[in-house]
């Protein structure tokens, strides 16, 4: 079976190139050797703290940013080098719903753009398709002649989702799709996304810092730390039976009503990755080996792995 989307040793380094004058800027490794396969119809959640490379990874997967190393294939095909976005195959839903809509265009112009440029549809066909899409995301057609600033965050995010679906994508990258929305509206959008996934047979890559959102919506979850996947596991188990100490730290830090506040672990994301395991400095289980070499993935089940020399064994 070919995966809907597959990443192999995907890396991205910023900086490092020589400037015209002066020394080279020190390279910053945003994403390091990320590999995963996502089956058609599956939702892969990607969690991590700010600065862990979530958005860089998402932008590479959507073709908005060329990778420095590694490969991405969609439906078993690789894009031409430097070809930019994948036509309509992979679409993107942005974190800031209003920032993703051009303030000087009407919603109609915004909705027609992918239909016109990607599918080459004529005006009547575009109108019909937009009506169909707005129906799918529960928006009123009267909104089409308004400008983005007239909408609330939740409505704007529905428009963003409708636009992402316009070009019949196979894969949708959801970059923190609900974090800018109000709590009561978050659930509406999450449920809408779940319904759309079934209706349009979509594959989702859901990027979020909110563990509860990721756990509730995903089939599998990848935990990102300093640009590398430290654990990839089924959503039902990843936090309940964490194997990587960092995953356990995340799960324990998340506030849960009725549970007393966690004894907070010290430390924060390091500025620059060190030799060996990037988490070693904050890890209570780290030994000399952890500080010497970076751990390789240890496969726990067919596609799932943990990148740790001394994973937690006991289920909680």
């Amino acid at each position: 079976m070919t995966a809907a989307i597959e990443a192999r040793n995907l890396s991205k380094t910023f900086g490092g190139e020589r400037r015209w004058f002066g020394r080279a800027r020190p390279p910053v490794c945003a994403v390091r050797e990320v590999s995963f396969r996502v089956a058609a119809g599956e939702t892969l959640g990607i969690v991590g703290e700010s600065g862990c490379g979530k958005t860089t990874l998402a932008r590479m997967l959507a073709g908005l940013l060329p990778p420095s190393g590694g490969r991405i294939s969609v439906d078993g095909k690789e894009p031409r080098a430097g070809a930019g976005p994948w036509g309509g195959l992979v679409q993107y839903v942005f974190q800031d719903p209003l920032g993703a809509l051009n303030p000087r265009k009407t919603i109609r112009q915004i909705m027609h753009a992918p239909l016109r440029h990607l599918l080459g549809m004529d005006a009547p066909a575009r109108e019909a398709r937009v009506a169909e899409l707005f129906d799918a995301v529960n928006l009123h057609l009267a909104f089409l002649d308004r400008y983005p600033h007239e909408f609330s965050g939740g409505q704007a995010q529905r428009i963003g989702i409708a636009r992402a679906l316009a070009a019949n994508p196979r894969i949708v990258v959801l970059d923190e799709p609900v974090s800018a929305l109000d709590v009561s509206v978050q659930a509406q959008v999450l449920n809408l996304l779940a319904d759309l996934r079934r209706a349009y047979h979509l594959t989702y890559l859901l990027i979020s810092h909110d563990l509860a959102v990721v756990e509730a919506v995903s089939d599998r979850v990848a935990v990102l730390y300093c640009g590398a996947i430290v654990e990839l596991a089924d959503a039902a188990e990843v936090f309940a039976r964490a194997r990587h100490p960092y995953t356990r730290l995340l799960a324990d830090s998340a506030p849960v009503p009725g549970r007393p506040p966690a004894a907070a672990a010290p430390g924060e994301l390091p500025d620059a990755p060190t030799r060996g395991c990037a988490f070693a400095a904050r890890c209570s289980r780290a030994d000399a080996a952890c500080r010497q070499r970076a751990p390789e993935p240890v496969y726990t089940r067919k596609e799932n792995y943990v990148r740790c020399f001394r994973p937690l064994e006991t289920p909680r």
Binding site: A100, P114, A164
Partner: peptide, 8 residues
């Protein structure tokens, strides 16, 4: 970015 993804 959205415009780029829309094929522009």
């Amino acid at each position: 970015d959205a415009a780029r993804l829309a094929g522009m």
